[in-house]
Each structure stands twice: as C-alpha cells, then as structure tokens.
Design a protein around this nucleic acid. Structure first.
Lengths: 351, 351
DNA sequence: ATGAAAGCGCTAACAT
DNA sequence: ATGTTAGCGCTTTCAT
C-alpha cells in the first residue's frame, strides 16, 4: 500500500476511524488495549497523518509565512533562522518568501500565503505593500521597519543607534562624517539619527543613497567614487553606514588607499550580525539584538493567532485590538549597543 | 462574509461550483459570458482559492521542503535564496527547515515535510539521516554533500577545488600548510584534496577539526590556539580552510599578530559567497557556483516530480531509476574556480 | 457549454 | 469507551 490512510489503520486495528483519530490526537477516553492496537497498526503500515487533510478540517494550518527582502543578506538570514527555530519549537512550519525588495513580488507572495491558509505572517519587507493590504485574513507582524500602524512592529531602536554611533564619531573628533544608506525617506530612522546628531554638532549631513535593488558590485563602485570625491575636497574622515556591508566596502576602500584606520579614517556600520562579526571583528557597528527581535515577533504573532482562535466566532473585530496595537508600537523597540571595533577610535576624556 | 468560498462565488454568479472551478483552472469549455460573470463575482467577493483544499483533492501541494543546517551561514543562505527563487518561478512554495546539523531535528523535519505532503525535498543536511530514510514518499535531491547513492547529488567539485588551492599554495613556495575543517571523514572531499596535494608535494598534512555544532567564538579560540602552536615550532606559513569563515578567522589572527599577508602567511578559504566577497574581497577562496548548483538541483527535482506524476500509478519503481541516478551522480558536479585575493601570492613562473 | 454528485483524508458532533 | 455521520473547500468523472 502506497500511502496508508487513517482508514487503513482503523481497519487493520479493527476499530473505527474515529478511534484512530482519537489516539492520534490523544483526545477523549481510550482503553490502553485499543491504544496499543492502533499504535501497532500505525507502525506496521508506516502510517503518517496527512497534515493537509488536518488543516482543511481543522481550519488551521500551523503554517506561518515569512516575507523578507532576501535571506542572502546576513541580517535577514539570521532573523529568518531565529524565527524559524522559534516557530518550529512552537509546532509551526515556515513558508519562506524572498521578495527581493520588489513590491509586485511581495504582493504575489502575500496572496499566495493567504491562499495557503497560513495562520500568520511575519514580514520585514520594505515596500508599502503591507499598508495597502485590504483586509488581511491572517495575523501579521512586521519586523525591522514599520510598514504601517495597522500591525505590530518589532524592531531595534534605529534612531538611537544611529545617533549613538554618530555622536561617538563626533566625540572622537571626526569633522567630516559621511552617511551611506539604501534609501532616503521619512521612515529611515537611521538616517534621521545621523542627521540630528550631525546638526546638533553643527556639521552638514552628506548622504550617499544606493538604492535597494542595486547589485552589490555596483554599490561598491558608487561607494568608492563617492569616497574618492569626498576625500578630494574637504577631507572625509569618517563613515557611518546603515549596514555592515556598506561599512565593509568603505573600510576596504580606505585600506586600499592606505588610509590609516582609525587614525585618519573611521568606519561604523549597522546590524552587527554574528556572520559579519566573525568575518570582520574589527568593524565597529551598531549591534541589533536579532534574537530578541525574532523571539518577540514570534511571541506577538502566536499570541494574536491563539487569541483569534478562541473568541471571535465571526468577523467582529476583537475588543482590545487597538490597545494591543498601541502596546505593540511602543513597547517593541529594542535597545542596541555599539560594538567598538578597531575601526572606531575610543573617546578620550577631555579635561 | 469572512472567507468566501468557491460555492459563494458560484451562487453569486448564478452558476454551479463546477463552472467556477473550470474558470479558475481554465479547463474545459466556457462561454465568454460565463467567464466574465464568474470573474466579476470573484472580484466582488474578494474570493481567494483555498490552496489547502486544492492540495487535498489534487494530490499535489506544490510545496517543496528545504532542509539545510542553517540559513545563518552565508553559503546556505545564498543557496536557499537561489533555490527559493527558482522554485517560486516554477510555481512552488518552499518550507524552510534549519536542522542545525542535528540528526534528530533533521529526522523530525523530514517526517513533518512528508506529513505536509510536500511534492519534493532538497536537502544539504549533514548527517546520514537521509541515507536511512526508509522509503521517502517524495522525490529528494541532495545538495553539496552526497548523503547516499540513493538520491541525486548536486555539488561543486570539492576535491578539485581543494587540490587546486593547495597546489597553488605549494607553487608559491609555502612549506607548512595547515588545514582547518569542520569534520574529518571519508566523505570530506576538501580534506581529501588537501591531503593528496600535500602528500604529492612531499609534505605532511596537519588538520584542525572544529566540529559542526561548535559555537563560533569557540571555533575562533580553537583556531587561534592552533595557529599559535603551529607557528611556534615549525613555522606555519599558510592555511587552507574548508570555508571562508574559518579562513577569515585565520586571517584576522594573522593580522593581529602583525604577520605580513601574503608574504609571511597565506590564507585560502572555500565557498566564495557574494556576501563574503563583498565583505572581504581580499580573501582568496575557492568559489562555488552556487547559482548553478541551485538551478540544477531545482531542475532535477522538478523533473523527477513531473515524471512521477504521469507514469507510476502504483508504487512500482520506475524503470530508469538507476540510470537517472547514475547520470545524477556523475554529471552534477560543477567546476569551481580560485579567486586570488590579496591573501594569496601569485605563482611566479620559475625558470 | 454546464451541472450533480462523489470523494480527497481527516475530525467533531452526536450517538450508544 | 467506541462508532456513525457529516463535512472542511475543492475537483472531477459522468451526465445532460
């Protein structure tokens, strides 16, 4: 028999399908003898319950969709790794979607996930697609960047992190601090932190915007050209980058030019993934607590899923919805810390 | 209505469920008018087909399971990213499983995937669990390391890559070449390549084995201690590492010690992911064609899935099974190339 | 060109 | 403590 089904087990054990189902789910009254008979039959047949059928019947799939730009980026990779691990522990499977920062793809993926009856979605996608989802049928949690107020957002304190990094640079005496980022926008809190810190110090922001979907080699070119030009006139002596890859590129450029790091040129990145810290331990960076963010995102999602399963027999919005969201928006910002590698000078206590 | 179903659409359009299904699947004869009526009804209701129900009925889920040690490792991250992209293009969704090099977890994941009726599995898991899977009901393709002869294996030419790297080191005049690897075993072809190259050059292999599940910081300690000891007595002047992370750690150690790279100390890694090459472009490494491997793995899987869907009404093994596998085992090894970064000396043509 | 009815594999009332 | 029955949402013969 190719794929034994519950009925086959029942027949073999000489009981009804219901009984087998009960054994499977450990529900209701079962005599010990029956249990054993059923287990034996299962083993003999190599029975494996069909999760698809269970989902259809039970109105829950125990699947969660993950929509992120690309797991090829270490930050998202570690995030996805963590999220998957926590969800697996909780008995959920994960459908992975790499949206490549592409709004169309993102939307398709959301459609697909809902079609697949996922119990929830965690997304760190960049575009505003999330905000425009009409009524998503599944609980949704955003990570890293707030797509909208409609859903809880879990993230690091990007603004504080950026400010801390730039203020540190200022304190070390850097006079000409450049910023490299993917995209310039209102929501870019790292950029905001940089700007505010610079302005407070009486300096002028200088920002290089690379775009999200620019290929890596091209980004590298852009960074090198920008640095070359910036060091030509008024000499740039520090870079604060919105992620570690850009920071590494700046650092590599400086080394190629035989600039003395950190004496003549300082670099600070953002993210502080384990990957990058293992590869370039000397790179100073603002470290995000990825594991904490992941844990919290999963918690929030699971609690929404569970609460949704009990109450709300119809589509009446649950009472505390807005409260919960407010909670979410404010409480789910995690502190970061500055990893002071060799690419950043220590602050000398001035007298 | 919370979640409109096919029947609701039918009612609204004034047709039978069958007709709606036909429109959905674009099958059979449909009048243009009917088509439009149905489409309108779908739009008005915000209908979204239930993929779970489709799977149950259709005996195919269009889901593929991915079992890899951890997507937190850039190599697997890029592999998974590529595989997911190709599969998405082909209309398949991906269930991601991080097995953490843990045989028990691996086994659980395989069980889970089969329970979820995946149409196939692609795995780069380390353990031998794959070999012992009794009769996996789904097509399976292994990637990177051959778990067994039972399934096709797609990978880079690890042996040739290692040999090439080590022979290059020998040719540059390195006299004391260490190897750092995760695990020493018969199947470790990078290790084999290293050994053979060294032996051929009349040198003695010296291998540091770190283990798979050792935490990164601990690995770093082990590497540094090993290098310290090795440079104390007979001075080590080169490291060939089985991946770029180990290579980077060796490199960082050398820099800390103010060894001149590559004059006094050379380093070559393995994998050559885009991530690492962006972060440490100067690191010499054996580059695997990840995208090619991913494409081929997906191709192989899809072709097996498709072929399985037509013939074979029962569980008779399909006739050409062994042939296909032989093909797979031999033809699916991809050539690598050596990226000569600044951590490797050029070969001087001797007279 | 369209519809009726059965069933994919499982679970949950509702019996007994 | 166990069995009967209906049905989750969809597709698919087999009619008409």
């Amino acid at each position: 028999m190719s794929k034994p089904k519950l009925g086959d087990v029942a027949a073999r054990a000489g009981v009804s399908p219901t009984t087998v189902s009960r054994v499977l789910n450990n529900r209701g009254y079962l005599s010990q003898r029956t249990r054993e008979k059923v287990y034996d039959a299962m083993r003999e047949l190599g029975y494996r319950p069909n999760a698809i059928a269970r989902s259809l019947k039970g109105q829950r799939s125990r699947m969660v969709g993950l929509v992120f730009p690309t797991v090829a980026n270490p930050f998202y990779a570690e995030m996805v790794y963590r999220i998957e691990s926590f969800l697996a522990d909780a008995g959920y499977r994960v459908i992975l979607c790499n949206s490549d920062d592409h709004p169309d793809l993102e939307e398709q993926y959301f459609e697909m996930l809902l079609s697949n009856q996922v119990d929830g979605i965690i997304t760190g996608a960049h575009s505003q697609v999330v905000a425009n989802l009409p009524h998503v049928q599944a609980p949704l949690v955003t990570v890293d960047r707030p797509g909208t107020q409609k859903y809880p957002n879990i993230r690091a304190d990007n603004y504080a992190g950026a400010r801390m990094a730039v203020e540190h640079l200022v304190a070390t005496g850097a006079r000409n601090i450049l910023h490299i980022t993917s995209t310039v926008s209102e929501q870019n809190l790292r950029l905001a932190g940089y700007r505010d810190a610079l302005t407070a110090a009486g300096m002028t922001p200088q920002v290089l915007e690379l775009g999200f979907r620019t290929p890596l080699p091209r980004k590298r070119e852009l960074i090198e050209r920008y640095l070359k030009e910036s060091t030509a006139g008024e000499r740039a002596d520090a870079v604060f980058a919105s992620n570690d890859t850009y920071a590494a590129m700046a650092l590599n450029w400086a080394r190629t030019r035989n600039l003395c790091v950190p004496q003549d040129f300082q670099v600070v990145g953002f993210d502080g993934t384990e990957t990058v810290r293992a590869l370039i331990p000397e790179l100073a960076t603002v470290v995000q607590p990825i594991e904490q963010i992941a844990t919290r995102a999963v918690q929030r999602l699971l609690q929404t899923i569970e609460s949704g399963r009990q109450g709300r027999p119809d589509d009446t919005p649950s009472p505390h919805e807005s409260d919960k969201e407010q909670q979410g928006s404010t409480a789910d910002v995690f502190p970061v810390h500055l990893h002071e590698g060799g690419t950043l000078r220590a602050i000398t206590v001035s007298s």
